[in-house]
Computed example of a mutant assay.
Amino acid sequence: MSLRIRRLVSVDEVHGLTPHLADYVRFVCDDLVRAGAPRFQPDGLLSKTLAHLQDVVPPRGYAFVAEDDGDAVLGMVFLRPSGAGAMEIKRLYVPPAGRGMGVGRALVMAAVAAAQEAGAAVVRLDSTRNLTPALDLYRKLGFVERDAFPESDLAGDPVLGPWAIYMELPLSPQGQSIQR
């Protein structure tokens, strides 16, 4: 099976990922509860994501899907503006069918390349401390922990804030930022 990364260019295309976004939200919520966090309503996170899809398509941002030979979605990631000279990775999700095949790595690398192409000096992200596989991937790719940034959805959130972790990857003009 081959893996292909495809850039989505319209809100309608990204809106087609709604079932995968709903799976992502359920996964994050369930994983947080397993880790001991309080339960919160996933509908709010999904609604907020769907209401801001224009931020993850051109000309503002980017959305990528990983697909197999049969066009099945094996993962997704979004990239949006996040302050001066920065882009932010959002909603990286690889469902069980895509795990263990390098899908997450390929998606993050596509997002970083797009940020660099857009002239960003840094790629940021927020996540929750319980999502160990994603955090391990980010660290392997050169992301480092940092303080909260004001554009983060998690900064100051009363439920998720205590579980938040913030990371960034400085980008070099020569394209040598990400660790291979």
Rank of each mutant, 00 (worst) to 15 (best):
V73Y: 08
C29L: 09
V28P: 03
V33L: 10
C29I: 14
P38A: 07
D71G: 14
D69K: 14
F27R: 06
F40E: 10
V73F: 10
G44S: 07
V57Q: 03
G70F: 14
G61F: 01
L46F: 04
V65M: 13
G61W: 01
L53P: 00
S47M: 12
L50G: 02
L53F: 09
R39A: 13
G70Q: 15
D43F: 09
A66H: 12
H52I: 00
L45G: 12
D30A: 11
T49W: 06
G70W: 14
L32F: 07
V73S: 02
P42T: 09
F40R: 02
A66S: 15
A63C: 02
D43Q: 08
D55K: 04
S47V: 09
A37R: 01
R60V: 01
E67Y: 12
R34T: 04
V56R: 01
R60D: 08
L53A: 04
L46V: 04
Q54Y: 04
P59W: 01
A37E: 04
F64A: 01
R34P: 03
S47H: 15
D71Y: 12
Y62M: 08
Y62P: 01
P38C: 01
A72Y: 13
L53C: 00
D68E: 11
F27I: 03
Y62L: 08
G61H: 02
V28D: 07
D71N: 10
V33N: 03
P59Q: 07
Q54L: 05
A63H: 09
S47Q: 12
P38F: 00
F40W: 10
R34D: 05
R34I: 05
L50N: 05
L53T: 01
V65F: 12
R39S: 11
D55S: 09
G61S: 02
P58G: 00
D31K: 10
L45Q: 13
D68R: 12
K48D: 15
V65E: 15
V25M: 06
R26S: 14
G61L: 05
D31L: 05
A37D: 07
D31Q: 12
V57Y: 07
A37V: 03
S47E: 13
P38M: 07
Q41V: 05
R26F: 11
G44V: 10
G70T: 15
V28R: 09
G36K: 02
G70Y: 14
H52Y: 03
G44K: 11
R39P: 07
A66C: 11
D68W: 12
R39C: 05
L50H: 10
V56T: 00
R26L: 10
R26M: 08
V57N: 12
F27L: 00
D43Y: 07
F27Y: 05
H52N: 06
P38K: 02
D69S: 15
G36D: 07
Q54I: 05
T49P: 06
L45Y: 11
